[in-house]
């Protein structure tokens, strides 16, 4: 290769650098700046060091929100990943059924998030909603179903909505992973005399490792940052029972206008997501490798 005389080519990188700077680096640095100051008004701020971080870390309401967040994300992964794999395994491999199931699966993914909240509010309303009226018509529950009435109902509605909304993504990823396995693997297993379970355990699952890693990471991050759906559905209630981290954060930042603590909270939130994603990635990268007898 010939070496270029001048280095003007780096100007081509400049637009991207500027976009990243304005969209990510500068806002992030602003948050860092806010997190160490007490701001009384424009041009009137006092440096407070780590005070906000200490306050936020001691905040019991934040601890509760974090606990709820872990429970929510954990349940999401536990339900959506296995369910997504099952759906992918059950999907047809050829013929018109392929397009039909792909389109059906893609539908929930195409709906705006706050619209999904609205759809489920209507769907579960005890007076006019299909689900609400049907469940209450069966007359099995001691307290009539109403997602605004009891925490457990709010959670069930929220989980159902989340699973309905995002399992298709996991299923589509897994389906792509399954389709990438050459037919010869299945033939070889058949000749070996392997059972369907063994084929799943030793061929399909290892071959889906890549897409499953992506699915777990995406679903974890996304569910950990969930805002629009509970905001539309429950607004964080009843009480604080569906107040997740982002909802609480917005309450502090926009509701109470406590920019300092909110900034400190944001940074901690960001670091938690980063750390957990890193751990998931490392674990998934190495799981199932080098299995000894």
């Amino acid at each position: 290769m010939e070496k270029w005389e001048n280095n003007k080519a780096w100007f081509l990188v400049l637009p991207v650098f500027l976009i990243v700077a304005f969209s990510a680096i500068i806002p992030l640095m602003t948050v860092v700046n806010y997190s160490v100051q007490d701001i009384f008004g424009p041009g009137n701020a006092v440096f407070v060091g780590t005070e906000w971080f200490e306050e936020v870390l001691r905040d019991t309401r934040l601890h509760d929100a974090l606990g709820r967040q872990f429970l929510f994300s954990g349940l999401v992964l536990l339900i959506e990943i296995p369910l997504g794999i099952l759906v992918a395994l059950a999907m047809p491999k050829r013929g018109w059924g392929v397009s039909a199931s792909l389109i059906t699966l893609a539908l929930p993914l195409l709906i705006p998030w706050n619209v999904i909240g609205t759809i489920w509010i209507i769907f579960t309303r005890p007076d006019i909603g299909l689900f609400g009226v049907a469940v209450n018509g069966l007359d099995l529950l001691s307290v009539p179903f109403d997602h605004t009435a009891r925490p457990i109902y709010a959670w069930i509605t929220l989980m159902a909505m989340e699973v309905w909304h995002w399992t298709p993504l996991v299923a589509l990823l897994c389906y792509a992973g399954l389709r990438a396995i050459p037919e010869a693997y299945y033939q070889a297993a058949k000749i070996d005399g392997a059972s369907a379970l063994a084929v799943f355990r030793y061929i399909q699952l290892p071959k889906m490792r890549g897409v499953l890693t992506i699915a777990v990471l995406l679903r974890f991050m996304d569910s950990f940052l969930i805002y629009a759906e509970p905001f539309a559905l429950t607004g964080g209630g009843p009480g604080n029972t569906t107040t997740f981290l982002s909802i609480y954060l917005v309450k502090i930042a926009v509701g109470q206008f406590d920019l300092g603590p909110a900034a400190a909270f944001s940074l901690i939130y960001f670091l938690i997501v980063l750390l957990l994603s890193f751990i998931f990635y490392q674990v998934l990268l190495n799981v199932g490798k080098g299995e000894k007898r």
């Binding site: 050459p182 010869a184 693997y185 033939q187 070889a188 000749i191 030793y202 061929i203 699952l205 290892p206 071959k207 199932g288 490798k289 080098g290 299995e291 000894k292 007898r293």
Partner: peptide, 14 residues
Amino acid sequence: AMVYQQFINYPSLT
């Protein structure tokens, strides 16, 4: 027993 063009082995087994 059969051997294929592609290298077919169980990916997660030694």
